[in-house]
């Protein structure tokens, strides 16, 4: 097959084979001591937000600061730091902002429990409305239940008059 390739074709093939290598060189290559550490690294860099390019996590971002932080996380992992240590390290420097999953504290209480509160309010409103409607329906079906004693007497009288 290679004998049928022209000089240009061969050059293109060589370039095409070289491309993946060149592309790989742009991504930092990290060595990990074991597979579990690699997974922790991937998890951490996906969970932490890049301070510069705000809608990307550290794993995705090309910005220099994200690259620095990847190296820092890698270094800390290799030194045996726990996930919490690393997250604390980032929060101490960049604030709660770097967390894609905000921590539960006084400032984020509303954020975490607000939706449940709204759900509760919604449930109460629905409950009140359905109960009111049910009562209204019941009143339509048995209107005599809602009459006062005097009204009932009058109704009975009227009905008796009809029968005559």
């Amino acid at each position: 097959m290679s004998s049928s390739l022209s000089g240009l074709g061969r050059l293109l093939l060589a370039l095409a084979l070289w491309l993946p290598l060149a592309a790989q060189a742009a991504i930092d290559a990290f060595e990990f001591k074991d597979e579990a550490t690699r997974e922790r690294f991937q998890h951490l860099t996906a969970e932490l937000r890049c301070p510069k390019c705000q809608n990307q996590n550290i794993a995705d971002s090309n910005s220099p600061i994200a690259s620095d932080l990847r190296h820092e996380i890698h270094r800390m992992l290799q030194e045996g730091a726990s996930d919490d240590d690393i997250v604390d390290f980032m929060v101490a420097r960049y604030g709660d902002f770097v967390l894609y999953r905000p921590r539960l504290n006084n400032e984020t209480l509303l954020l975490w429990y607000g939706p449940f509160g709204l759900l509760l309010i919604g449930a109460v409103v629905v409950l009140v409305l359905t109960r009111k409607r049910r009562r209204a329906v019941a009143a339509d079906e048995h209107p005599e239940h809602h009459l006062s004693a005097a009204e009932k007497r009058r109704l009975d009288e009227l009905l008796k008059q009809d029968e005559k």
């Binding site: 510069k52 620095d68 820092e72 420097r93």
Partner: peptide, 11 residues
Amino acid sequence: GTLGLDLGVYG
């Protein structure tokens, strides 16, 4: 950028 990192410099 070590001091920058400790200061939380992002740009």
